[in-house]
Computed example of a mutant assay.
Amino acid sequence: MSSRTKGWGVAIAACLGIWLVQNGSEDVTPPMPSAAQAFAAGPNAHTDAAADPLPPSEPVRLRIPEIDVDTPMTSLGLTARGALDVPPADDRNLAGWYRNGTTPGAKGTAIVAGHVDNARGPAVFYALGALKKGNRIEVDRRDGRTAVFTIDAVEVYENEDFPDTKVYGEAGRAELRVITCGGGFSQKSGYQGNVVAFGHLIGVR
């Protein structure tokens, strides 16, 4: 992994939390994945075989039916510090993909990020931590194909323990990472970590 990818988790972890600060209550914190959804709990009993990777093509829309996500996609670059940028905070229903990396459905590890909330309330990936192994993620691509992924695990990491290689490392098949803020929450500094959903390509429509 190149040094340019170091610190991505910190960049995503910095996303807002303003809504929680305004509410001043832990009752509105987003769902966190249970231990049963982690890799350590074992593989998904219904995991489908990996599909052959597709040629690169930009993603235009992402859907996660189980948590009612249906979002357009925008491209993301890196900040001046070399960290992954985030989508505009004022659009609650917008996810971004790392344009200098793998496109979803192509061979390698595609990275998608989005906010958990903004000043007005829950945002696109507020419920990401509620996903379970075997849930599906669908990505519409500019070439007219839809890449279908199954979730292999959903894990949460504190900033200081973010596993860069595990999340961003290269893969020999078409894989997907969907990332948002999570972990503990501080009224002073916001979210202390990230929720990451890991998936792999199982089909194409």
Rank of each mutant, 00 (worst) to 15 (best):
P56E: 13
G96T: 00
T103K: 14
T5N: 11
Q187E: 12
P72V: 03
G77T: 03
I67K: 07
L201V: 05
S75N: 10
G144F: 01
G17H: 10
D152F: 02
H115Q: 04
I137T: 07
D140W: 01
D117H: 10
G101M: 07
R92P: 08
T29N: 10
G134H: 06
V112K: 08
V178G: 01
L20V: 13
R173W: 01
A14V: 03
L176I: 04
G184Y: 05
W97N: 01
L84Q: 11
N100T: 13
T109F: 04
A147T: 01
D152T: 03
A11N: 09
E170Y: 04
V21R: 15
R136L: 13
R177I: 03
G96A: 08
C15H: 07
V154E: 03
V60Q: 14
V178W: 03
A80T: 11
A130M: 05
R173S: 11
G108N: 05
A147W: 02
T5P: 00
E26K: 13
I111P: 03
A113P: 11
G108H: 09
R145E: 10
D164Y: 02
G9E: 10
P72T: 04
V156H: 05
S186H: 05
T150C: 04
N100H: 14
A38P: 00
W8P: 00
K132H: 14
A110L: 11
A197C: 10
A14L: 13
G17E: 14
G42R: 08
I151D: 07
G203P: 12
S34V: 10
L54N: 06
G114N: 02
R136K: 14
S2D: 14
G82L: 12
Y191A: 10
K133Y: 05
V60T: 15
F185Q: 04
A119D: 14
A50W: 00
I67T: 06
A83Y: 15
R61M: 09
T165I: 01
E58I: 11
A35S: 15
F198I: 04
H115F: 06
D152Q: 05
S3M: 09
P59H: 09
Y157V: 00
G144M: 04
V10A: 15
L201M: 09
T71R: 08
T102H: 08
T47K: 13
T74D: 04
A153L: 06
D52P: 08
G108K: 08
G42H: 09
